[in-house]
Design a binder for these strands. Structure first.
Length: 464
RNA sequence: GGUCCCAUCGUCUAACGGUUAGGACAGGUGGUUUUCAAUCACCUAAUCGGGGUUCGAUUCCCCGUGGGACCGCCA
């Protein structure tokens, strides 16, 4: 048996979205699982709409989530001559023909079909040009001669047998009137020359498979195996499109979703392995199989992405977490001062307990990262005269104390609570506001300890 | 409209003819707690409808219903 080869073949006509990333992931995982190869092919034969920036975005996205392809990315437009060559061979062998229909003729056919409420299908006028006169002013397109009888069946690795009557497959165009090849031709030629053995792609390509198989057959090439995975739907239940909000990887990375978490989420969206939810990279390679792919489309669920991310935040090692946080802050927030790196890293053990995203950690850590506190008026009111008195006393006590430990702080605080006949909240809340500028945040002892004696005294001194 | 595909808790899914229909996320209740959380324990919640086949259907078949995809000289 030949070595497995898969590919991901996006067109750079818009930003790559999360559905495409999942397709890439499945292809990659399958190749890795089978110890085969995985290729990236940029399908840029539509010159009008392809843009370099999207090509870059695709490559960057795959890199971010950890999908690496074998060799260099394969640029489809560079192979146009090969595609043309095959088109001409098909013509010579009688599997294709020139069609001289004018735009007007085609439009008319479409309108008629609409009126009769019939599906439009090219009327195959030039399939048999015997009695037709070739118009001089029209450049022909090349159409594939689809078979007219019987039905086509292919065994889909996800959906099982998929059948269609051949009459419904039209004589599709393989060469435009400007001589350039179209998708179905290019894709087949490339897949064949690249040695692709398994085509795993979105369900929206299922119909194309029938056209593509005919080209393989006409050329006498070995058929690859096909697996059409159900599409990812929006919360509204529609196909995810490039225009949807929160659909590119950047939409997730900017709110502090980590690549591993998203990878794990995407893996479990439409695929399962027993009751297992969490997969390390190695585990996902080890367990991935096509039989675990479900048949029905699945909806994107942000809460679940967040909870997956939360899981990773709490379970990966803190050095790794810190590195990711550092990069995140640099790109999307404010660079963490190198002098503060150690403090933030050491505080991660409690900062992360309150976070679903890296952004949450950043917000929790703001009081450590930044020296200026913004306190809103309402919170400021909570630091009343009595609170100020306690705060000052606390400040004095810790200054005089030789120890600066949780136990000692607790002792001091408890004495003050007793002395001023208040409760923990009465002391803790104003103090938290004074130290971090918010009612909400980490535990008060964590705050004090992470800030250090000097900074604590300095910040409290503003409330003399 | 035509063709094709799909259908289990709100969501992601497990159960490849026999289970009290399982897990996870979300939701709820209670414990713990120093705010927000976190955490622990427990709970709620599903086989789209109708016919078959079978001793027995979530599972197989048919018909409805619902949802989706495709119907470009885009990919």
């Amino acid at each position: 048996m030949s070595k497995v080869a898969t590919r991901f073949a996006p067109s750079p006509t818009g930003p790559l979205h999360i559905g495409g990333v999942r397709t890439a992931l499945f292809n990659w995982l399958y190749a890795k699982n089978q110890k085969g190869s995985f290729f990236l092919r940029i399908e840029d034969t539509d010159k009008e709409r392809s843009e370099d920036k999207y090509k870059i975005q695709i490559i960057e996205s795959l890199k971010w989530i950890g999908i690496n392809y074998d060799g260099k990315e394969y640029i489809q437009s560079a192979k146009i001559n090969e595609h043309k060559k095959i088109a001409n061979q098909l013509l010579e062998k009688g599997f294709a023909y020139k069609c001289y229909c004018s735009d007007e003729e085609i439009i008319e056919q479409k309108n008629k079909a609409k009126q009769k409420k019939l599906p439009y299908i090219y009327n195959r006028k030039w399939r048999d040009p015997k009695n037709l006169e070739i118009p001089k002013n029209i450049k022909p397109v090349l159409r594939f001669k689809s078979s007219l009888e019987g039905q086509s069946v292919f065994k889909d690795m996800v959906q099982g047998d998929v059948k269609v009557s051949n009459l419904t497959i039209e004589d599709f165009i393989i060469l435009r009137n400007n001589g350039t090849p179209t998708y179905n031709l290019s894709a087949v030629v490339d897949d064949h020359t690249m040695g692709v053995t398994h085509i795993i792609r979105g369900d929206d390509h299922k119909i194309n498979t029938f056209k593509q198989i005919q080209i393989y057959l006409a050329m006498g090439w070995d058929l690859p195996k096909f697996a059409h995975i159900p599409l990812i739907h929006t919360t509204e239940g529609k196909k995810l499109s490039k225009r949807d909000k929160s659909s590119t990887l950047n939409d997730y990375s900017k709110i502090g979703i980590m690549p591993d978490a998203l990878r794990n989420y995407l893996l479990r969206l439409g695929w399962s392995f027993e009751d297992k939810e969490i997969f390390t990279l190695d585990e996902s390679i080890k367990h991935f199989n096509i039989s675990g792919i479900g048949k029905s489309p699945s909806k994107l669920d942000m809460t679940r992405i967040l909870s997956m991310n939360e899981h990773y935040i709490k379970n990966i090692n803190e050095n790794d977490l810190f590195d990711q946080l550092k990069t995140y802050c640099e790109i999307y927030k404010k660079k963490i001062d190198i002098k503060k790196e150690e403090t933030v890293k050491k505080s991660l053990n409690f900062l992360k307990n309150k976070a679903k995203t890296l952004e949450d950690i950043y917000n929790n850590a703001k009081y450590l990262i930044s020296d200026e506190l913004k306190i809103n008026d309402e919170d400021l009111k909570l630091i009343d005269d009595k609170a100020k008195k306690i705060i000052n006393e606390f400040s004095k006590n810790i200054n005089e104390s030789s120890k600066f430990t949780k136990e000692k702080l607790e002792e001091i605080l408890n004495q003050l609570i007793k002395k001023h006949q208040t409760n923990f909240k009465g002391v803790g809340q104003p103090m938290r506001i004074a130290l971090i500028g918010s009612k909400f945040g980490p535990g008060i002892f964590d705050i004090i300890l992470s800030l250090g004696k000097e900074t604590v005294i300095k910040r409290l001194s503003k409330f003399n």
